[in-house]
């Protein structure tokens, strides 16, 4: 159980970090900027919410596989490898993380950001002292949600990663294997561990969200006297 569990945790950690890196600028732009084709961009990003995981996995397989465009152009072949899993996970969890990030950034008061600029704050200082301190609960809850989502993911992982022990066999697939092999005792233990993990993660999300809602309330109360 240890090997697939560690692999799943590694995958979830790596995809959460990538999501933060990718999602924060994207969420900020979607929340606060206007640009052409914004609705289209939002739809594409949210698509994995409604798409069957097997469909997403299929396209990723075609794209990253040994005859895919990446392989032909750059000799990059990431199907059935950890990198392929990672890309799949990031795309699959992006809507979850991004929706939370976007809401966090939307709650920022425009007056606050503008005034901060007139106080001589360069962009990095604005992020370090104003934007991140006011939005971190929202960013954290989105990331935790994406982390939990990645841990439990099955369809996309199976399509793009297959079932290679130590490389792509994550914990959800391991449980499937155990049941196929009628090893119910081990399956029950692993499932139990995942259940507890998911519960703890979601509980943390609730705690963080509550904190965020309270803070958000204090901002609105303050800026509209």
């Amino acid at each position: 159980m240890i090997e697939p569990l560690l692999l799943s945790l590694r995958l979830a950690t790596a995809s959460s970090l990538l999501l933060l890196l990718l999602g924060i600028p994207l969420g900020y732009v979607l929340a606060r900027k206007r640009f052409p084709l914004k609705r289209l961009a939002e739809t594409v990003i949210l698509l994995p919410l409604t798409l069957p995981p097997t469909v997403l996995g299929y396209y990723l397989l075609v794209f990253l596989g040994y005859q895919g465009p990446l392989a032909r152009l750059f000799s990059i072949e990431w199907a059935f490898r950890f990198e392929g899993l990672l890309i799949g996970s990031v795309i699959f969890s992006l809507p979850f993380a991004l929706t939370a990030y976007r809401e966090a950034f939307r709650s920022l008061d425009e007056d606050l950001l503008q005034t901060a600029r007139t106080l001589g704050a360069p962009r990095w200082r604005l992020w370090r002292y104003v934007i991140l301190p006011l939005t971190w609960p929202g960013l954290l809850s989105g990331t935790l949600l994406a982390f939990a989502h990645t841990l439990g993911e099955f369809g996309v992982v199976l399509m793009i990663g297959g079932n290679i022990p130590g490389e792509t066999r994550v914990i959800s697939i391991y449980i499937y294997d155990l049941v196929q092999a009628l090893e119910f005792a081990e399956a029950a233990r692993v499932a139990g561990v995942l259940l507890v993990l998911s519960f703890i993660l979601l509980y943390s999300v609730r705690v963080v969200e509550e904190k965020w809602t309270n803070r958000f309330r204090s901002i609105t109360a303050f800026t509209h006297p």
Partner: peptide, 27 residues
């Protein structure tokens, strides 16, 4: 705006809600 030698106070005051009075002024 960050290069202009002005002080701007909007109608809402736009104080940073997470910073104390002294930290707001030190910003």
């Amino acid at each position: 705006p960050e290069k202009r030698p002005i002080g701007y106070m909007p109608q809402s005051y736009a104080l940073f809600p997470h910073l104390s009075a002294i930290e707001n002024v030190a910003f």
